[in-house]
Design a protein around this nucleic acid. Structure first.
Lengths: 113, 113
DNA sequence: CACATTGTCAAGTCTCAGCTTCAGTGTTTC
DNA sequence: GAAACACTGAAGCTGAGACTTGACAATGTG
């Protein structure tokens, strides 16, 4: 069972889907089986399993199989990857915005059209 | 000029695309025109403008048009939305993970089915 | 003014993600 | 052992999204 480190693309793409975010919210309250996740979602078990696969690949969920049931739990790895990416860029962005304010103050805006 | 607050779905979806992340990295070093962004990307100007539109809708970029040039700058709003979503969930996830360890040691898990 | 630059708009193509269906496979229960 | 259960895997459908093309508009520059 390999556990390759998730990349940012995977994590953000995984988080972009509303169904997957719903699954994550649900798992935030505790572990659940695949069929347990499927019930309130109104989609097929197969679809849920596909979502869970994406979430697992992006380090947002981990699963293990006990008997015939696949149990899904939250995994903070993907969350950490996303947070790190954002946190690394925030200072630069904010600095950039401060300087933008200066530029706008100096140079007069020309109303378009 | 409407400025509706970006939702999480938009932001994460926008960040999921590698080209858009490249654009953001570029804009982190300073404002740029649409064609200026297109040059190193190897895609059409039209494609870049479409990406910029997505980024603007998700509050990650703002643009203004001066003359015939559309100037794009970074916007921290979308970043803040994403960070807030992640930060709000981190404690729950980490608590969940801690308790998972305990549960595994003591009693069998009861996943909802 | 002629011309190039920069961007906008509206198709149209193409790939892929999300979903379903269905036919298995392994596991529990009676 | 039979039947219900929980999932797996593959195939196929469909719509969204990334990209192109080409025709147009607006703005600079010789």
């Amino acid at each position: 069972m390999e556990n390759p480190p998730p990349n940012v693309a995977q994590v953000f793409q995984a988080l972009g889907d509303p169904t997957r975010r719903t699954i994550l919210e649900r798992l935030g309250t505790g572990p659940a089986s695949a069929s347990g996740l499927a019930a309130p979602l109104g989609i097929t078990l197969a679809a849920v399993v596909q979502h869970v696969q994406v979430l697992e690949d992006s380090g947002l969920v981990s699963t293990r199989k006990t008997g015939r049931v696949r149990i899904c739990t939250i995994n903070a790895t993907g969350l950490a990857v996303a947070e790190q990416w954002l946190r690394a860029r925030r200072p630069v962005w904010e600095a950039r915005l401060d300087r933008l304010g200066d530029l706008l103050a100096v140079e007069p805006l020309k109303p378009s059209v």
